[in-house]
């Protein structure tokens, strides 16, 4: 299968969901959807055979938006070469997103980690109340946010 064919197939599948689909050589496809259409788009991609999520990346653009990228792919021979990014923008003051754990069980811990470290709420993920990597008692700014500053030393003694 060629990259363009896959892109066309995805475009057809996600028709009507307001998704922007673009591709980047050699094997990457970007799908951007709105937060309200995320679960639907994800289910469609899952139906196509994209059976697992490799990574969930949350990105913080301070005062502007959050972006959440689901890097999905497949274990089947025909699709395993390709990566499909499912990308959602969230308003900065309301970082909530429907969880995809029902669509892809493999995101369970990844979503919990992004909640833990970045403070993005994945609604419907059963682990939202628990800390994963941080201590249970942690009560500060989520450390991966840009406003959390790390002290840096210069090169001078």
């Amino acid at each position: 299968m060629r990259l363009d064919d896959l892109r066309k197939e995805i475009e057809e599948k996600l028709n009507g969901l307001g998704a922007e689909v673009s591709s980047k050589d050699p094997n990457l496809i970007e799908v951007r959807v709105g937060r309200d259409k995320l679960v639907e788009a994800a289910s469609k991609l899952r139906e196509m055979g994209l059976d697992h999520v490799k990574a969930v990346t949350g990105i913080d653009y301070p005062k502007e938006r959050f972006e959440v990228v689901y890097i999905t792919s497949s274990y089947s021979d025909s699709l395993s070469h390709f990566l499909v990014n499912l990308r959602v923008s969230l308003p900065y003051d309301d970082p909530r997103i429907p969880s995809l754990v029902r669509v892809w069980p493999s995101v369970l811990y990844q979503e919990q980690e992004e909640k833990d470290l970045l403070g993005i709420e994945f609604e419907g993920n059963p682990r939202m109340e628990e800390r994963l990597l941080l201590p249970d008692s942690y009560d500060g700014i989520p450390p991966l946010r840009k406003e959390f500053k790390v002290r840096v030393e210069g090169i001078d003694a």
Partner: peptide, 15 residues
């Protein structure tokens, strides 16, 4: 219950 040896690689990479 994980996180006992979390060393914030992702955050450190940003600096």
């Amino acid at each position: 219950n994980i996180g006992y040896v979390h060393r914030s690689v992702e955050k450190l990479a940003e600096v």
